[in-house]
Design a binder for these strands. Structure first.
Length: 558
RNA sequence: GCGCCUGUAGCUCAGUGGAUAGAGCAUUGGUCUUCGAAACCAAGUGUCGUGGGUUCGACCCCCACCAGGCGCACCA
């Protein structure tokens, strides 16, 4: 038994066996047992784990929960790791771990090293996490940053949970927004060449397009001026998209986000996959023709209405290609699970994708769409615009430069994807410089500094005896460190990683508090010094792992 | 009008149907001759939007309403 995740399962088994034994012995009536939940009490005085099984049973048994609790608790055998099993009002059974078991785990943590926290709920299943996927029509804004941080962290957590993870960026390099981008670029390029032309109405008016037009002129001169518009658009467009993607890739790199695969929407047409999928759907009766367009009959699958997949002009809609894209994900590439992270403006798209799963014969549970709510950027309470369609904007890069990568990541992660958030630049800078981002990193740097000192003094603590770690601050820190696998498990199961930053803060608090109360390197007590150095080294492992999962750095000095 | 999300401390936000609802910021008081004071310790603040319901027990589940956001295209 090497971590608390296993202990939790073990406790549930013990409870089940004890309850069944009580029933056999006639101490409890024979009723079906409810699902046994084992939780972590909020108050330390209630032990390390608790179960509400007696409270749940009281319903069907019609007995006082405390009596049930006492009956069950009395039948739970002694185990090497458990100090006590107690019935507690109003009907809990509380479990406390032995200090001598707890402190021994410090050695396990050191042994596991960077792998501590790994669990195996994924069992090698393949899962694709697709996120950001912004049109390559301009720089990323703060909202994309939120999706990027969320997606990369979810990918990290799934990886740590035993999944085989692939991170993908879907490049919308086809469709009407790209056409608008091409036309805008041609207009700006012509303007850069001194030709007085108007921007297309649906165009991208940001300053970056003017810059891009000038850049094209600087690099290619008037090469595209004399081409027919269509040809110029396409030639310029190809180069422009490449440049935009490079920009996006570098912005994401700055945020610490990298992808395994950049998947082109256009490729779905080029390799015939779109045609293949529409043929399949048509054969299965999911498509019909109406008003000159081809519709997906989602109303037959429980949706409010049908949706166009191929316009009367013959081009596919976003929805249409997304069907082919998901066919590709599930059928062609065979991912066991797919997680799509979309912005709030794609909300309406979610339920019809569910219908698509049905039409493709794929279990809808294999697709999970996470909607990350809007981010409004503020500066001292004033709204700042982030739209790339019009005018000046603050880009993701600007925010990272101003606030810092680690602070950005921490801020995004601490909030649930479901809540829309105000990102106040002033507040973010202020809070991050004082707390909680640097607070956590400071704990790591402090530990690094202690270990450095130990090294300078030639202290070898590899033979440290962790059983000496019996003080309350020491054990409190150990208890918290051992929770990492549970934090990872929860995040992986719910795909909500906001537990990580909160856990990181708790760890830091526990460490700082320990540090204040317990002198680590002491010349009077070499055995205690060695034991505490082990504890501190293990705390460093846990902090670094937690920060690593969040995609944050673990500084040795600050 | 319909759908999704949100409403918790002055502010920004956590909160797996359970035991006295939490953290940071801000505010107020203490702590540095010893390993990093970017730290520690202590104090205070809540009709958990409102009203019903389910339950032994609800911030959490259900219904209605109020407020804010986002969708509801042959845009993406």
């Amino acid at each position: 038994m090497n971590n608390l995740l296993e202990i939790k399962t073990r406790i549930a088994e013990l409870l089940k066996q004890a309850a069944e034994q009580a029933q056999r012995e006639g101490k409890l009536p024979e009723v079906a047992l409810p699902e046994i939940s084992v939780e972590r009490p909020q108050k330390a005085e209630n032990g390390d784990y608790a179960s509400n099984l007696p409270l749940k049973l009281a319903r069907s048994i019609g007995k006082n929960p405390m009596e049930i609790a006492a009956a069950i608790a009395g039948l739970i055998p002694a185990t090497p790791e458990m100090l006590s099993v107690e019935a507690a009002a109003p009907g809990f059974i509380n479990f406390s771990l032995r200090p001598e078991w707890l402190n021994r785990q410090v050695d396990s943590i050191l042994e596991a090293g960077d792998n501590y926290g790994d669990i195996d709920i994924g069992k090698g299943q393949s899962v694709q996490v697709e996120f950001v996927s912004a049109n390559p029509t301009g720089p990323l804004h703060i909202g994309h940053g939120r999706g990027a941080v969320l997606g990369s962290t979810i990918a990290n957590v799934l990886e740590a949970s035993g999944y085989n993870v692939e991170k993908e960026y879907y490049i919308n390099d086809a469709g009407s927004q790209m056409t608008a981008f091409y036309r805008s670029l041609l207009a700006r390029y012509r303007q850069a060449n001194g030709i007085d032309v108007e921007m297309p109405q649906e165009g991208y008016f940001g300053q970056y397009m003017i810059d891009l037009g000038r850049e094209m002129k600087a690099e290619y001169g008037d090469r595209f001026i004399h081409l027919p518009a269509e040809e110029a658009e396409s030639e310029l467009g190809k180069i422009g998209v490449t440049k935009m993607l490079a920009l996006i890739r570098s912005d994401l790199g700055k945020l610490g986000v990298e992808f395994d695969c950049w998947f082109s929407e256009q490729s779905l047409y080029d390799n015939g996959q779109f045609a293949k999928v529409t043929a399949l759907l048509r054969a299965a009766g999911h498509l019909n023709e109406k008003e000159g367009a081809t519709w997906f009959v989602s109303s037959a699958l429980g949706e409010d209405k049908d949706n166009v997949v191929i316009r009367s002009t013959g081009t596919s809609t976003y929805f249409g290609t997304d069907i082919a894209y998901h066919y590709n994900k599930f059928i062609e590439r065979g991912f066991n699970r797919v997680i799509d992270i979309w912005g709030a403006d794609h909300q309406g798209h979610v339920s019809r994708m569910g219908a698509v799963m049905g039409a493709l014969g794929v279990d809808p549970k294999r697709l999970r769409v996470i909607i990350s709510q809007l981010v409004t950027l503020k500066r001292g309470g004033e709204c700042v615009r982030v739209s790339k369609r019009s005018g000046d904007m603050i880009t993701l890069r600007d925010v990272i430069d101003e606030v810092g990568v680690d602070a950005c990541r921490f801020f995004f992660l601490a909030r649930s994807a479901d809540s829309q958030m105000d990102f106040d630049l002033e507040l973010a800078k202020k809070e991050s410089s004082e707390n909680p981002v640097y607070y956590v990193q400071y704990a790591h740097a402090r530990i690094a500094s202690i270990l450095k000192l130990a090294g300078e003094e030639g202290l070898d603590f590899s033979d440290g005896d962790v059983s000496l770690l019996t003080g309350e601050p020491e054990l409190a820190l150990v208890r918290l460190m051992l929770q990492l696998p549970e934090i990872v498990e929860f995040a992986a199961r719910t795909l909500e990683p906001q537990g990580l930053p909160h856990y990181a803060q708790d760890l830091a608090t526990s460490f700082h508090s320990f540090y204040k109360l317990c002198r680590v390197i002491s010349h009077e007590n070499s055995a205690q010094t060695k034991a505490r150095l082990k504890l501190v080294a293990a705390a460093k492992v846990i902090l670094a792992r937690t920060l690593g999962l969040m995609g944050m750095t673990s500084p040795e000095t600050m």
